[in-house]
């Protein structure tokens, strides 16, 4: 696919945190691309660098201790890392919006939700407060807040978690951004509310035509939302491709492990598959492939040489020395997981 379609291109992004114990390389050479109007799912375990990747796009990494140590973030042809802070403020909340993981604490407790939404509208669209209130009511209605005329003057503590997340979505969408970064938007919510929030995001995406970077550790969410998936492990992307390809033909042992560890109704009361071992300490990553201590296929080459992302199919890349040679059948034999998960879109 041609590059001109890409609304956001991240090239070799490196985000380091200087701590007393040493330099934590939270993101170490990540390449990503989001095409206009599509959703990219970014999947990985806790602590693999997903959230840091997200926060670095609108340059919200707290510095110190964090710093963007290298790479480029090209948004509509501009490198965001070279913009002045003032220009960046004009982009945040206007062109690029964010939805955070914690709806409970992401709203300011001392202002009404109406004030907090109007603030963005007045900031970026230079409206009077009456016009902004009008727009706020409209957007609250759009995100499914019942009787917005009343709720607009509510404080965050008067709302449930699902309602708060709707408010945060309303706030993020109030200036019709081109790119929405959703950092685990449904993790803190009930399953029933999750579905509603995801449906809402999808319908708003269709309506507004924005692109979404969706961070999650829930492959089910990715299957229903994303067109492309990037699997992240230990500060790097280990597999990237269109969602159908990744789901039908995973090419990295880590991806295979992720799929296998999803519980499936009807598979019986067997123990759930667990990827052995733990996420490596970012201060002491293993040499070679960072996944080898936990990998059932690991051989000598994995311990000495780090694999790079290389093609294994149409737009489908994986960072594994055995890319193309392993598939789910081999995986089943090797791990004794008889019934491999099938997720249908």
């Amino acid at each position: 696919m041609s590059n001109s379609e890409a609304i956001l291109k991240i090239k070799d992004l490196k985000v380091y945190f200087d701590t007393d114990a040493g330099v934590v390389k939270s993101v170490d050479g990540v390449d990503l691309e989001i095409k206009k109007g599509t959703t990219l799912g970014l999947v990985g375990e806790s602590g693999c660098g997903k959230s840091v990747t997200c926060l670095s796009i609108p340059r919200l990494i707290e510095s110190p201790p964090g710093r963007i140590a290298g790479g480029e973030i090209i948004y509509k042809g501009k490198n965001l890392l070279e913009l002045s802070e003032k220009d960046m403020q004009g982009i945040r909340g206007n062109d690029i919006s964010m939805i955070f993981q914690e709806p409970m604490t992401s709203l300011n407790p001392v202002f009404t939700i109406g004030d907090q939404i109007q603030e963005v509208i007045m900031l970026h669209q230079h409206k009077t407060s009456a016009e902004a209130r009008e727009l706020t009511l409209r957007i609250l209605k759009k995100v499914g807040i019942p009787s917005p005329e009343i709720r607009i003057d509510d404080y965050p503590h008067q709302m449930s978690g699902g309602m708060k997340q709707r408010v945060i979505i309303a706030m993020a969408l109030s200036c019709s951004p081109d790119l929405l970064i959703a950092d685990e938007p449904t993790t803190a919510l009930d399953v029933t509310i999750q579905v509603q929030i995801l449906d809402l995001m999808r319908s708003l995406q269709d309506e507004l035509g924005m692109s979404i970077l969706l961070v999650t550790h829930d492959l089910g969410v990715v299957a229903s939302m994303a067109s492309h998936v990037a699997i992240m492990y230990a500060s790097k992307i280990v597999e990237y491709g269109p969602v159908e390809q990744i789901f039908s033909n995973p090419g990295h042992p880590y991806t295979l492990g992720l799929f296998t560890s999803i519980p499936v109704v009807g598979r019986g009361k067997r123990d759930l598959y667990v990827i052995p071992g733990n996420v490596p300490d970012p201060l002491a990553f293993p040499r070679g492939c960072k996944f080898w201590p936990r990998c059932v296929f690991a051989e000598d080459i994995c311990r000495s040489q780090e694999p790079f992302l290389e093609n294994i199919g149409e737009g489908h890349t994986a960072a594994c020395h055995f890319r193309g040679k392993i598939d789910k059948h081999l995986w089943k034999e090797k791990t004794n997981t008889g019934s491999f998960l099938n997720i249908s879109r």
Binding site: P58, L60, Q89, R92, F100, E102, L107, V120, L123
Partner: peptide, 12 residues
């Protein structure tokens, strides 16, 4: 978290 939200809005 709400301070991060405020920054993400584009406030100075």
């Amino acid at each position: 978290d709400y301070i991060r939200t405020a920054r993400a809005k584009g406030l100075s």
